[in-house]
Amino acid sequence: MFEYMNFHIAPWGWELSVYFFLIGTAGMAYALATAPVMFGGRFEALRPLQLPGLVLAFVIVLICGPLLIHDLGQPMRFLYPILYFHWTSPLSWGSLFLLMFAACVVLFWWFDRAGNTAPLKPLAIIGSLLGLSMPLYTGNDLMVQTTREVWATPWIPVLFVVLSVTSGAAALAVIGMIRKTDDADASKILHAVMLSGVATTLFLFLGLLLSFLYGSEEMQLGWHILNDQFAMQVWLLTLVVGILAPLALLVRPDIGRRPQILAVAGIASLIGAYAFREVILVAGQLPQLYY
């Protein structure tokens, strides 16, 4: 007999981190795209980004559905979480919200095209709330795993929301630059959103760092594993590329609001948002892999 004869797989893999990242981006892209309808006023500057935002959200939903279904062991049963709705499972809520969010995206676009403006505002509000609930519920998915200490903290949903906020704005900034719909006011808004998002992320990163270092044995083991096998994702992709670089680019508004800079910062923060989620997902699972 040797010391180990059985092994376990980590249940969640790259499919989930990609999904978390994409759907969060989509949610916030929708919120920003519909902000002119919702708030009007100075958010009108975002009007040119409405269609790209909607399309982005729509494309992402189109990617995420199959991705999630593919990730299931029984893909044909993808509607079960709604059919057999279990109210204490964030996944059930998530499936429901995802479906409703997709509907909002399509309906908003539909009514807007048809020139029927009456339902737009309610759709903007509901859709944005649902969009916001996407990162929230993916975070909750992890947070409710009370036995995984890395995940079982209310910071996770907050972090995911903040990451999404940044990502949504970043994605729109990139699109804006590509489509050259740059508009000083729009850039200003996106810049503000991104700067505050990335800055908050930095604080959350530091907070998480502290809870890793000062936390339970499992947290510390998680940190150890991350530094061991995922050092590049943690330090380079998350911290340097995903947080410090955009922060440096954005910190001076006069420079940061330039569309190119904004787009570069956006790409960097998108990379960071993905890497951060992957890091959290991995770190939460691996400490118990040999348990």
């Binding site: 062991g73 079960y80 204490t88 795993q145």
Partner: peptide, 29 residues
């Protein structure tokens, strides 16, 4: 059990934690 989105895994009156294979979607929550 709480996390299962389909109630595929359930708690039995007598204490077993069981799995309804016909409901499980293998989301691995």
């Amino acid at each position: 059990v709480r996390n299962c989105p389909t109630e595929a895994t359930y708690k039995h009156e007598e204490g077993y934690v069981l799995q309804r294979y016909e409901r499980c979607i293998a989301c691995r929550t």
